[in-house]
Amino acid sequence: MRIGVLAIQGDVREHRRHLERLGVDAPEVRRPAELSGLAGLIMPGGESSTIGMLMTESGLLAALRARMAEGFPVYGTCAGMILLANRVEGSRGTSLSWIGGLDVTVARNAYGRQVQSFEADIPVSVLGEAPVHVVFIRAPRIVTAGPAVHVLGRLDDEAVLVEQGPLLASSFHPELTDDLRIHRYFSAKAQRFLQDGAASLAT
């Protein structure tokens, strides 16, 4: 099975390493044609404005939207989640979504600047009893989530790991630790898409 990693900018290497440890091929994706033959796509951390702008310019954004309309699984971490969100709040007000599809409003850098970045343990019941140790870096905050969005993990009372059909998104970075469970969870989703098609992932 092949799960692509969007390789415009950001921590591409870390996501690829996690997927490869799970025995999944993880080609880099920069161009629209590189989406073909994939069972899913991970969008890494980075700067969402840089990644969104360059995806738009190369036609990759439109191509990915078309794939997503067929139920293609995508996991966005941090910047990747901002790209998936339907609404993005920043210091200059609410802006249009980049790719969209995930019915949430996210606020950029809403956990504070870099000096407030942190590591924490998040309980995620679908991944078993042991909490997931993850890293929040200038993280986006999920401010509101629509009814189709399932919250899989919370920090205090706030959603930080969410799922909506074929889409998975986290405020944090599981790829910066050695815990592979979230990548395994997403790989299983991609496997179902490959075997049983989009209907198996519909909410």
Binding site: Q9, D11, E47, F118, I137, L176
Partner: peptide
């Protein structure tokens, strides 16, 4: 933490 400090640099890669 070291993970938080080096982590931001990881996010800047390719930029």
């Amino acid at each position: 933490t070291a993970g938080v400090k080096t982590g931001l640099a990881e996010m800047l890669k390719g930029g």
